[in-house]
Simulated scan of single mutants.
Amino acid sequence: MSQPRTPAQVLRDARQKDSRDKRGRVLSTVDRLLADNEPITFTGVARAANVSHWLVYAAGMREHIDAARRRQTRATTNDTRAATIAPAGWKVEQQLLQQDNRRLREEVDRLKTAIRRNLGQQLDQLGAADLSTRVNELTALNQRLQSDLERAQALITDLTGQLNEAHDDLAAARTSIRQLIRVENTASATP
């Protein structure tokens, strides 16, 4: 026969069950937000799971939420949803950079094709005596085109760096806003 439980044991068991239920709601809410590709924030998880802010920052919960946020950040870097969140100016700048890159690649391909075609035609037309002179001219032209290509690639690298800096600035601004919201939430929660 089991002994009757004391009121303290009943209360402790009820609190443990309530704690397990709340933690389970937090974990399922985080998984649902991740699956729905919704932004995962501590405040958002606490509201969606209907639990206290303290619980989402508690050991075990915080690590799970941070891991989900990191997965979501990695997943959205190339996602079109992340592009819709970015300011319009940055989207335009990114599109312009992509168009410039595409245009430069097409121009390089076109120039290579033209050089090959012209070289073949001219070699057919020239005699053996003119070949060495023509090869020197084509070598100089090739070097000039190579330097043009290197300048274009340097420009692409520079513009990509500027775009990365803009993305870093955006991430820093978002982090600052989150911290301000967190401070504001903490201030409004304290009487």
Rank of each mutant, 00 (worst) to 15 (best):
T157K: 11
R134G: 01
L11A: 15
A128P: 09
I156E: 11
W90E: 05
A86L: 15
I156R: 15
L55K: 08
E38C: 06
Q153Y: 10
D148A: 13
Q94L: 05
W54L: 09
A35R: 15
S52C: 05
A48E: 10
V45L: 01
A75R: 15
D100S: 07
L111V: 08
N164T: 13
R5N: 04
D13H: 08
R110N: 04
Q98W: 07
G89E: 14
T41F: 00
S19N: 06
A83F: 00
P87N: 03
Q153E: 11
A166H: 12
L33M: 15
R32W: 07
Q95T: 13
D18F: 11
T73K: 01
S19V: 01
A140E: 13
T41Y: 01
N142L: 09
I177W: 07
S132A: 15
A75L: 07
R182S: 13
R5I: 05
P87L: 05
N185T: 12
L159R: 15
L145K: 12
N185L: 10
Q98C: 09
T73S: 04
R69H: 00
W54Q: 10
P87G: 08
L170R: 12
L159K: 15
Q121H: 10
L170H: 10
Q125T: 10
Q162M: 07
L97R: 08
D130K: 05
L145Q: 08
T41R: 02
K91E: 00
Q162A: 11
N185K: 08
R174D: 00
D100W: 03
A49N: 06
E93Y: 11
L149Y: 14
T29G: 03
E63F: 03
D130W: 04
P39A: 01
T6I: 03
N118G: 06
R178V: 03
R12E: 10
P87K: 02
N50H: 13
V45G: 00
D109E: 12
P191A: 10
T77P: 00
A129V: 08
L33C: 11
T157A: 15
D36A: 14
T190G: 05
E63A: 08
